[in-house]
Simulated scan of single mutants.
Amino acid sequence: MDRKPRPGDFYRHFKDKMYQVIAVAVHTETEEEMVVYQALYGSFGIYVRPLALFLSEVDKEKYPQVKQKYRFEKVDMGLVQPEKGPCTVTTEKKNEENMGNSGQSQGNPSSAPNPRENKNLLAFLDAGTYHEKLEVLEDRKDRFSAEELLAICEIMEIGRPDSEPEEKYYAVKRYLELQNKYEGARLR
């Protein structure tokens, strides 16, 4: 199986933080392939790392308690496993275990991925600035599911997981307004 990341793919770092791949670039001097990726939490920083290191296995001597095999493991943001919580994503490996040779999900037909695939969440994550994220949030206020709002709160590390969806919405909105205000003031 080709593990090379593609733009738009989501990955979980072994320290349990989420990232989205922006591109696989080539270093101009060494011609080494580099992964350009963005954090899906905090200030949404953008980072670059050599492809070989991005795809490497976790050093089990240095981090013996880590259960994840690879430093970064691909996740499918469209799949949900309700038994683990309302917004738990599954790893690509678990997804493959549930697939037959034909690529069709086996067993319960209700376990098939939702064709909607959290399009409101994806629109929010694709927005580049705090201002754009706030616009997506406000434009789609009544269309965000409780699971999508929970995912946004978890990614941004804000709000309480046990709060109502409306509380989560306003926590995200306040956070984005605050970030937008201070980011705009910094540019003046």
Rank of each mutant, 00 (worst) to 15 (best):
K93T: 08
Y169W: 05
Y70K: 04
V66I: 15
S105I: 13
E61K: 15
Q106I: 14
R49L: 07
K133F: 04
E157I: 13
M77Q: 00
D126Y: 14
L51E: 03
R116M: 10
F54N: 00
Q65G: 04
K141R: 15
V66P: 01
K60T: 11
K67D: 10
P113G: 11
Q179N: 09
F72R: 00
P109W: 02
M156D: 01
I158K: 05
N98I: 07
P64T: 12
P86V: 04
E117G: 07
L149G: 03
Y169Q: 02
E96D: 13
Q81G: 04
D126W: 12
E166D: 12
D126M: 13
P161Y: 06
A112D: 08
G100T: 05
E183C: 03
G107V: 13
L176H: 02
K173W: 03
T129I: 03
E97D: 14
V58D: 00
V48H: 05
E154M: 15
F72N: 00
K69I: 07
A112F: 10
L51K: 10
L187F: 02
I46G: 01
Y130C: 05
L187V: 05
E117W: 02
Y170G: 00
P64R: 13
E132Y: 08
Y130V: 02
E132Q: 15
Q104T: 10
D139V: 11
F72C: 00
K93I: 06
G100V: 02
K168V: 01
N101P: 05
E135C: 08
K168N: 03
L137R: 03
K141C: 07
V80Y: 00
E147V: 08
Q65C: 06
L122Y: 02
P86W: 01
E166N: 09
V48P: 00
E164T: 11
K119L: 03
D76W: 05
S111N: 13
P82Y: 04
E148L: 10
Y63G: 09
E183A: 07
T91F: 12
H131E: 10
K62R: 15
S110K: 14
P115I: 11
L134H: 09
R49T: 08
N118A: 07
R186Q: 10
V136G: 04
S105C: 11
F44C: 02
E148K: 13
N120H: 15
